[in-house]
Design a binder for these strands. Sequence first.
DNA 1: GTTCTAGAAC
DNA 2: GTTCTAGAAC
Length: 296
Amino acid sequence: MGQSLIGVNPTSVDLVDVGKDEEVKMRPGQVLHIVNKLYPYTVQFAEESGKDVTEAEEKVQAEKRPCEDSSENDDIENVPRKAKKTEVVDTQGSSAELKLSKTSVFPQEGTSSKKEHLGHWSQGLKSSMQDPKMQVYKDEKTVVIKDKYPKARYHWLILPWESIPSLKTVTREHLGLLEHMHAVGEKMIDQCPARGSLEFRLGYHAIPSMSHLHLHVISQDFDSAALKTKKHWNSFTTEYFLNSQDVIEMVRSKGKVTVKDHASELLKLPLRCHICKQQLSTIPQLKEHLRKHWPK
DNA sequence: GTTCTAGAAC
DNA sequence: GTTCTAGAAC
């Protein structure tokens, strides 16, 4: 869902959709008074050393260093950084009963009942994707980061700059973007020194844990210390993992993505090698088995 | 999504 | 006794 801003007209509420290609230019420090007649807000754009999303898009510094594994990832996740895009300041005491309509301003800000959402772990990608130290590639539409807990030797996430919560909100309007994300994923593979020896898959989790649409690009060795549970395994090796190409085709034909009802049960399936289909009883045994399929 | 750990499984 | 999994996390 795209963000929307509410007009300043004090007597009527105008919703301006800026979701697609938001063109609301705000400068750091500029103050925008967003006034829902019942719920006044002041949105202030905090300074961010020239790293506003829109600016980042304009820069389009298509830098690529996919596979050169640099140092260890700094653990800067879930720390709600001050230099976010916007700050919402409640200029009036908030009344508990007054809720912003669903299509209202900044979905993640919540209303008042429950707070934290931006600092919640499920929102982690939103901050990671903005962190230059995490970015491995970026262009006008997307950014690529390495999965913080890679489940294989190579595991990237392709994310759109546009705020799309998940596949649930994807429509035909997004087809071009989905195809671009796929193309970027393949470009990452092309750049990878192991492209000749490892297989790769590109796809989405049927029921992702992390908010913000993200395409997984993962090598099929599954040689990773972060791969620890049956859920991990099955989320990448059963139909829980939706091929990017299939998703694109589904959006093209149906205009949306539907997920099978039993998707969540797939995570409980017995451990089975994705290559030879042998069943293993524990994760350690599975990991030992996988070595047989490693490239020589 | 991960961490932690109780208790099931071996 | 050790390994391993699965569910809570205020």
